[in-house]
């Protein structure tokens, strides 16, 4: 398990870093997809098979939509004209490294309580929770998604 988490973690972070270093935005999209798939495989290894599969399916479609948007709107989607499209690179690096230092220190210094493994099938347990004690969460998510549908159409529709 340690080797799996380490290896897939390196893949996830490595492809995540490459997203912001390659010239081609289309390539960056697929690297981001690789990062998501690595995390999804980790979730499946943790025992959350349903959620991991949902993430893989959702992200594959989402990244395809992102690639279409790039071709539609961006001026340099394929990276054929190499140009830097960043501002305040060193300031951003400094903030990111400080945040990583703080979070990683928390990960190693906080004493976490760890208990045994799950007894019930996690997918059944998740369904029971969402249709039972977590119903308010589920309803809030449903309402948020409905508001997103309405808001997205309202913002994106042509005004002419």
């Amino acid at each position: 398990m340690i080797a799996l988490v380490g290896a897939l973690g390196v893949v996830a972070v490595g492809t995540g870093l490459l997203v912001f270093t390659v010239n081609s935005m289309a390539r960056a999209t697929f690297l981001l997809l690789a990062s998501f798939v690595a995390v999804a495989v980790l979730l499946i290894a943790f025992g959350l098979g349903y959620l991991g599969t949902v993430i893989v399916l959702m992200m594959t479609i989402e990244m395809m939509i992102m690639a279409v948007f790039m071709v539609m709107l961006m001026m340099n989607p394929a990276g054929l004209m190499p140009m830097t499209m960043v501002h305040n690179r060193w300031g951003s690096w400094a903030i990111a490294l400080v945040v990583f230092g703080l979070l990683a220190a928390g990960a190693w210094l906080v004493p976490f309580p760890t208990t045994g493994r799950a007894a019930q099938d996690p997918t059944v347990a998740l369904g029971d929770a969402l249709m039972g004690p977590q119903m308010l969460t589920m309803m809030t998510l449903g309402l948020a998604l409905l508001a997103t549908i309405v808001g997205t159409v309202a913002v994106a529709v042509s005004r002419r």
Binding site: V13, G16, L103, A104
Partner: peptide, 10 residues
Amino acid sequence: LTVAAALVAT
């Protein structure tokens, strides 16, 4: 959690 922190920072 360290990997997660690295992803958040990236």
